[in-house]
């Protein structure tokens, strides 16, 4: 255990050289890499902090925007609901008006239809009544009824107003050559003479041709045509007038 000065000196030099070698080829490169990595980490942390701040800002902005949107949405929804209520009320009123119009129209149509049905029924009833009365009167008709109808005709001639008599007289002049008398039963001479006398008393004497003929369809009574005028007192015409009058009503 002695101190060798050569070894001592060489060891000092060796260690100093080793320090230089390791510092040059080991410590500095590694420390530089570590420092670069730390710088990179610091930069990334700084970048991350900036991005975090931006993200927070964006988040707050989007939250504010979402809040605004929610407010706008609620306002739009309220406006829409109000508009829907108004539109619904308007449509309901229109529908009520339309229903009222349709109801009135249907009521008018029903009334018209009922009126038509009633009129048709009345017409049919009158026709049936006329037919029934015609058949009944055909059964009941006879010389007596026929005589009474002729007498009725003669009596009514006396009650004709003056204006009618003038028109008949004018008709007799225009068509003087022909006066037709249609009777339900054949008329004998006296009966024909009675009729001619009654007419000539009221409208004056006639020089024209008198024509008498029988038409059983008259049932009872007679019909006289003077020019364009008809004088009648028979059941067929009465029944027809009755039904037509009722139908006209």
């Amino acid at each position: 255990m002695e101190l060798d000065w050569s070894t001592f000196a060489l060891e000092v030099v060796n260690f100093l050289i080793l320090i230089w070698l390791l510092k040059r080829f080991f410590y500095q490169p590694v420390l530089n890499v570590i420092e670069q990595r730390r710088g990179q980490i610091r930069e990334e942390l700084s970048q991350a902090s900036r991005e975090q701040a931006e993200a927070d800002q964006l988040k707050s902005r989007y939250e504010a925007r979402l809040s605004d949107w929610e407010t706008e949405r609620q306002a739009a929804r309220a406006a829409l609901e109000q508009e829907l209520v108004q539109e619904r009320g308007k449509r309901l009123r229109q529908l009520d008006d339309e229903l009222d119009r349709q109801r009135l129209k249907h009521a008018a149509r029903d009334l018209q239809q009922q009126t038509q049905w009633r009129r048709q029924a009345e017409t049919e009833a009158l026709q049936l009544g006329a037919a029934f009365a015609g058949r009944l009167l055909s059964t009941l008709a006879g010389p007596e009824l026929d005589r009474r109808l002729r007498q009725l005709f003669i009596d009514q001639l006396t009650t004709l107003p003056e204006s009618a008599l003038k028109q008949l007289h004018q008709g007799r002049l225009d068509e003087a050559q022909r006066i037709e008398v249609v009777s339900a039963l054949p008329l004998d001479e006296s009966q024909q003479q009675a009729i001619r006398q009654a007419l000539e008393q009221r409208i004056g004497p006639s020089q024209g041709q008198w024509q008498f003929r029988q038409d059983a369809q008259l049932i009872a009574g007679l019909r006289i045509s003077i020019g364009g005028w008809l004088l009648h007192a028979n059941l067929q015409d009465e029944l027809r007038f009755f039904s037509e009058a009722a139908h006209a009503e």
């Binding site: 060798d4 050569s6 070894t7 000196a9 060489l10 060891e11 060796n14 050289i17 080793l18 070698l21 390791l22 080829f25 080991f26």
Partner: peptide, 20 residues
């Protein structure tokens, strides 16, 4: 020269070489 090289010095050089 005036320096005596011992095994200690050579071993030290070996260690230095390995580290380098």
């Amino acid at each position: 020269g005036p320096l005596a090289l011992t095994s200690t010095v050579l071993t030290t050089w070996g260690v230095m070489l390995i580290l380098w």
